[in-house]
Design a protein around this nucleic acid. Structure first.
Length: 580
RNA sequence: GCGCCCGUAGCUCAGGGGAUAGAGCAACGGACUUCUAAUCCGUAGGUCGUAGGUUCGAAUCCUACCGGGCGUGCCA
């Protein structure tokens, strides 16, 4: 499709004298497939040529000759519509897909440049709630997509393992805690203590003061406090890693906030040298008012460092360690101001890479009756969501496919996929309401829908094995063959096949757009469309009972769809079982 | 108060200068002796928050207002 676009632009450039760039950006997709695959609106030219747009469209249409991909151009009103040669498209695309197989979709756009993705970053003192799901799945998808595009990607889990909340936990544990309880179920027990602390602090505000003192002790290296903190941290981290393993997510670095503790002083010194830190009411402040931002606190009056100071330190450390081309922070939209301040200070420090840091914000998850709040105990644990999704998937499998082997494993992939995909399909920036019914709905625009399409293709391929031997191995993967040995793709001429092929040709664009716009939802929605086009084909055009070469051509077609669905889901962190 | 984000079908959301505003869910009606019905086909459902403006053309850009959310110096 990219080549087709280029071909049209070159043709129009020659005819109109416009820049190819300008033409490429004005090309659009017509509202219906009967109107072709691309359209060129003639309004702009109308002004230059002082002629009505329909006349220009008509004149251009009469001058355009078919090309490699271009079948014909038709004028319709003020538009010039272009139709692609679908057989030619199929001849190039299908062999490419089955030959590349698991590598289809990979490109070398990144040329090995390093990209850092900071995502997930759970608070160690708190359980992993559905609120953390967004950063985790969006970050993981971006991680995979950038990797596929040829970047060297470093996934960083900037653990929230430092800060005042640990002072609170230390106070709570010393007052009400029991070691045995802690070891039994660390995350939930710490959560219980955290909620309890806030209940008690309502009645006795001096607890808050005590917590700040304990955190300051921690920063100073107080041995007892540090000992407790270490225990909390390692017990929680183990739990989180179990969850990440379940979800198939890996990080290259677990350097959290605590890691930067002994580098903070250096950062503060640097800020002072550059004249960016000023004293105010006993605290250290960066005055950003001249840049239209509220000034921000760098160090509390009690000497304890703050989030932004640790973030500044981390950014500098990361550049020194990785020399990144881009650094993405996949963090909630409520921290937008924090990142504006962070990036501005980096810029004022004269760091030339300050402009390579980007906040990738997303909306928050809320309940019908309001926002989630860890403090008030209003959370849903991600673990519960994943478990329920998996159990429901298991029930459905038992009912619909009782003879399936490895039901538990398939249920895991389907349930997990539904949860991940359900989050990714919505545009990041929008707030989303948490709704059990929606999370546990496996029909329509969902991962199970795509996974199901994939499984049906696998099923057909298994049954059609002997017919596809020429180009497919028994396991359904591609066999390298010369293009002339492949079935005639020109036979794929039905409406369903043509539309499917045209959609398939847009796979690469969807991946690239997802990366450029930092929006996994673009790819997620594309995959739904691809699966939908496949299902339409599937219901109207039999594969296994088709005659001779047509059957082979259809097997080739669906093999390619299978690869695209599987690879596309993979980029989103979702697995595609072969049966379900 | 000020700043940022969001407002599209009953619900959840695509589309973010161009042709008749699209999906899914829910509702209703159809399709399983035929490649797994987690599917497919059809029906119904819309002053694109409101009012102005820019433009040949606005759901899309600008301004104001309304509604919701988030943030706004000692949390992260």
């Amino acid at each position: 499709m990219l080549q087709f676009r280029k071909e049209i632009s070159a043709l129009l450039a020659a005819l109109t004298g416009m820049e190819t760039q300008e033409i490429e950006s004005s090309l659009e997709v017509p509202p219906a497939p009967e109107m072709g695959q691309y359209a060129f609106p003639c309004f702009l030219l109308s002004r230059r040529l002082k002629k009505p747009p329909p006349a220009i469209a008509e004149e251009l249409a009469s001058k355009i000759e078919p090309g490699e991909y271009l079948e014909r151009a038709e004028n319709k009103g003020p538009y010039l519509n272009f139709f692609v040669r679908v057989p030619q498209l199929a001849r190039r695309l299908l062999p490419e897909v089955i030959t590349a197989d698991e590598n289809y979709g990979r490109l070398n756009r990144g040329e090995g440049k390093t990209v850092l993705v900071d995502f997930s970053a759970p608070n160690i003192a708190k359980p992993f709630g559905v609120g953390h799901l967004r950063s985790t799945v969006i970050g993981n998808a971006l991680y995979r997509i950038y990797k596929a595009l040829g970047y060297r990607v470093v996934g960083i889990n900037h653990l929230g393992d430092w800060g005042t909340q640990f002072g609170k936990l230390i106070v709570a544990f010393r007052r009400w805690g029991e070691q045995a309880e802690l070891e039994k179920d660390p995350v939930h027990y710490l959560y219980h203590l955290y909620v309890h602390f806030h209940q008690e602090a309502e009645k006795d505000p001096s607890l808050e003061e005590e917590a700040r003192t304990q955190f300051r002790n921690l920063e100073k290296g107080d041995r007892d406090a540090l000992e407790l903190w270490k225990g909390f941290r390692s017990l929680s981290l183990e739990e989180f890693q179990r969850l990440y393993r379940f979800m198939g997510i890996e990080f290259d670095s677990y350097h959290g906030e605590s890691f930067y503790n002994d580098r903070i002083e250096e950062t503060i010194k640097l800020l002072q040298e550059k004249g960016l830190a000023t004293e105010s009411q006993g605290a250290l402040v960066a005055d950003l008012e001249p840049y239209g931002l509220p000034s921000c606190l760098l160090r509390k009056s009690d000497g304890a460092a703050l989030y932004i100071t640790r973030d500044l330190t981390a950014a500098i450390y990361r550049f020194e360690t990785y020399g990144f081309a881009k650094l993405f922070y996949v963090v909630g939209a409520e921290q937008t101001l924090h990142f504006k301040q962070l990036f501005k200070i980096l810029e004022l420090l004269g760091l030339p890479w300050a402009g390579d840091c980007f906040h990738v914000p997303f909306g928050l998850i809320y309940f019908k009756d309001g926002r989630m709040s860890t403090r008030e105990g209003k959370v849903i644990f991600l673990e519960e969501v994943l478990t329920r999704a998996r159990e429901l998937a298991f029930e459905i499998i038992k009912e619909k496919n009782p003879s399936l082997a490895h039901k538990e494993e398939v249920a895991r992939k389907v349930g997990l996929g539904a949860v991940i995909f359900g989050d990714l399909i919505n545009d990041r920036i929008k707030d989303v309401e948490f709704d059990w019914e929606k999370v546990l709905d496996f029909s329509g625009e969902t991962a199970p829908y795509i996974q199901y399409s994939h499984a049906r293709i696998c099923s057909i391929l298994r049954r059609g094995e002997e017919s596809s031997q020429a180009f497919l191995r028994p396991d359904g993967t591609a066999n390298a063959v010369a293009p002339e040995e492949l079935p005639d793709t020109g036979l794929l001429s039905s409406l369903e096949e043509q539309e499917l092929l045209i959609t398939m040709a847009r796979f690469q664009e969807a991946v690239i757009r997802s990366a450029e716009e930092l929006r996994p939802s673009v790819l997620a929605r594309y995959l739904v469309e691809l699966a939908r086009d496949f299902n339409k084909f599937y219901h109207n055009r039999p594969v296994l009972t088709a005659e001779g070469e047509l059957k082979e051509a259809r097997l080739l077609l669906i093999s390619s769809v299978r690869i695209m669905l599987r690879n596309g889901l993979e980029l989103l962190g979702v697995e595609a079982p072969e049966e379900m």
